[in-house]
């Protein structure tokens, strides 16, 4: 179970309204990712759901029961913090058992659950160590272990992988996804990492200044962004935006085209530009191209290797079927 509904929830810190009225529905068993730029209110929203912050107005329901006034411990949710928040003076075993001890479970049952969690998370050999004697990835797993022994209705993760190095992050990402498959429990996951959001989510919630810009599956957001913000935020490298003459030709204020949807040629094409920087990754080549009459650089992705250098003239041809048009309000024209 883990069906969470937010109805007209707002949050203000003093005078400042960080979250304007917000509605959100999270279904049982879903993997929901909150993304958005720094300071947009992702953590705040998560903490509101957890009960670590009081809502200023609005209602939260968990599994059909009003949870707005319920203290965090009674909501049946478990949270994994960015800093892991392990108890440094307790062994891994005691850390994981802590929620069970607080729930006054008998010792045998506690041990059984801790062992089971440790097995799932490959922590069996580390049960008698202190958190200080573990690597970052292991600490992360202990934090997750402490969350799963409680068998919560939903897991809340606040940027759990941001302290890990790139390789480990990929690993943990897969492990968390796998955990979601096995447990089949609702997970709410905060990140500002594109790749995490796209690969892990069943449903992505894009936030901007406390407002939900769009909710949808990763590919929905990629193919049909509701507005310019979502279009620019989802996808890496960023979508290119072109205003002015080219946009007017297509009856729009602004047009957007992803780097992977532009063809490049040294001989001919729709748009002419000069190469600024070319980045060779082996599998792909990213070109930053300056076009006359366009404010920003255009980023173009070419599969494989492409022999263009700084200062070369190239021609770009956007794939018309993949063009996005935006009106003056920044909304996408279907």
């Amino acid at each position: 179970m883990g069906h969470i509904t937010l109805k007209q929830v707002t949050k203000s810190f003093g005078e400042v309204q960080v979250i304007p009225p917000l509605d959100l529905e999270i279904n049982d068993g879903e993997f929901v990712v909150f993304v958005g730029p720094s300071g947009c209110g992702k953590s705040t929203l998560l903490r509101l759901i957890a009960g670590l912050e009081d809502v200023s107005s609005g209602e939260i329901t968990i599994d059909g029961r009003a949870a707005t006034e319920v203290p965090p411990a009674k909501r049946g949710l478990a949270m994994v913090f960015q800093s892991y928040a392990l108890y440094p003076h307790m062994t891994v075993r005691k850390n994981i058992a802590f929620p069970l001890r607080m729930a006054k479970l008998d010792i045998a049952e506690q041990n059984k659950r801790v062992e089971a969690a440790a097995k799932v998370l490959n922590l069996t050999d580390y049960l008698d160590r202190r958190p200080g004697q573990l690597s970052g990835g292991q600490r992360q797993r202990v934090a997750i272990g402490r969350a799963i022994v409680r068998e919560p209705a939903a897991f809340l993760f606040d940027e759990p992988l941001s302290n890990l190095d790139a390789a480990l992050r990929v690993n943990m990402r897969l492990e968390i996804s796998e955990l979601h498959q096995t447990l089949d429990t609702t997970m709410i996951y905060v990140t500002h990492d594109q790749v995490e959001a796209m690969t892990m989510a069943d449903k992505i919630v894009v936030l901007h200044a406390g407002v939900i810009e769009q909710v949808g599956s990763p590919l929905e957001l990629y193919h049909e962004p509701r507005n310019k913000f979502v279009a620019g935020f989802i996808g890496s490298p960023k979508m290119n935006f072109v205003e002015g003459e080219e946009a007017v030709k297509l009856n729009a204020k602004c047009i957007g085209i992803r780097p992977e949807h532009i063809g490049v040629s040294l001989e001919s094409g729709d748009w002419k530009g000069t190469v600024g920087v070319s980045e060779h990754l082996g599998s792909d080549t990213f070109l930053r191209i300056k076009m006359p009459g366009v404010q920003e650089h255009m980023t173009v992705r070419v599969g494989g290797e492409f022999g263009a250098r700084h200062g070369d003239t190239v021609y770009l041809t956007p794939d018309r079927s993949k063009l996005h048009r935006f009106d003056a309000q920044g909304l996408r024209i279907a």
Binding site: Q82, A85, Y87, R146
Partner: peptide, 20 residues
């Protein structure tokens, strides 16, 4: 965050004092 984690883990203020 440690105190908040303990709070989520179901520790009341007295338990938070003695355990954390």
């Amino acid at each position: 965050e440690q105190l908040e984690a303990a709070e989520m883990d179901g520790a009341n203020p007295v338990a938070r004092f003695f355990f954390i």
